[in-house]
């Protein structure tokens, strides 16, 4: 465990909690892509199946359980409890265009051709693109609430910090996971355009709105 991974994990946790609290406190999930949240729930479910087979540390287990729990709570709020506030008309990204290629790739490029490992690989690939329905929704409506942009910032920051963590681990531990690194780079790149808007607009007190 190094400082980059720890702050990366905490940044990820912050993102998840910010989103859940925003929805809970405002009693509304307007502007939030339910599809992205379902994909994240699927990511955590398929990645953390090793909760049942191996114990790594109390920290590891606790974080996994919190991530899974929060992601299902978010999906529950969007599709069940606060369904009336869900903006389904603008959440039109076709997720099968992500799931099918990602599933195929997980079968072809993995560390070990076993069910658990293929599901882990699937979760890594899927996570890298799971935010696309949310970004697509923002590009469609042309704006995002400031709190939603904080969520996206912490979610992007988490993967950027993981990239530094992997450089650190490569130098100091000889650790190198090509699948995680390539997917992590792709994931971070997807946030670059958003990061630019966040720094130039939101941090200067303006609302994030895109030119028509």
């Amino acid at each position: 465990m190094n400082i980059f991974r720890l702050t990366g994990d905490l940044s990820h946790l912050a993102a998840i909690i910010i989103l859940l609290l925003k929805i809970w406190k405002s009693r509304s999930c307007a502007g939030i892509s339910g599809k992205s949240q379902v994909l994240f729930a699927l990511v955590f479910t398929t990645r953390y199946l090793d909760l049942l087979t191996s114990f790594i540390s109390l920290y590891n287990t606790t974080m996994k359980v919190i991530y899974i729990g929060c992601s299902y709570a978010t999906v529950y709020l969007i599709y069940m409890k606060l369904k009336a506030t869900y903006d389904g008309n603008h959440d039109t990204f076709r997720v099968e265009f992500l799931i099918v290629p990602v599933g195929g790739l997980a079968f072809l490029v993995n560390h070990d051709f076993s069910p658990l490992e293929i599901l882990w690989t699937f979760s890594i690939y899927l996570e890298s693109v799971a935010i696309l329905p949310q970004l697509f929704m923002i590009s469609k409506t042309g704006e995002a609430e400031t709190i939603t942009t904080h969520y996206l910032f912490f979610l992007g920051l988490y993967r950027a910090l993981y990239l530094i963590n992997w450089i650190w681990r490569f130098y100091f531990e000889g650790f190198f996971d090509m699948i995680a690194i390539v997917a992590g780079v792709v994931q971070t790149i997807l946030y670059c355009d958003f990061f630019y808007l966040y720094v130039t607009k939101v941090l200067k007190g303006k609302k994030l709105s895109l030119p028509a």
Binding site: R5, D9, H12, R47, D50, S54, I56, N60, M63, K64, Y67, H111, D112, S114, L116, E117, W120, Y162, N165, A180
Partner: peptide, 10 residues
Amino acid sequence: AEGEVLHDEL
């Protein structure tokens, strides 16, 4: 188990 990959990151 043999050949099993251990992932220690989240």
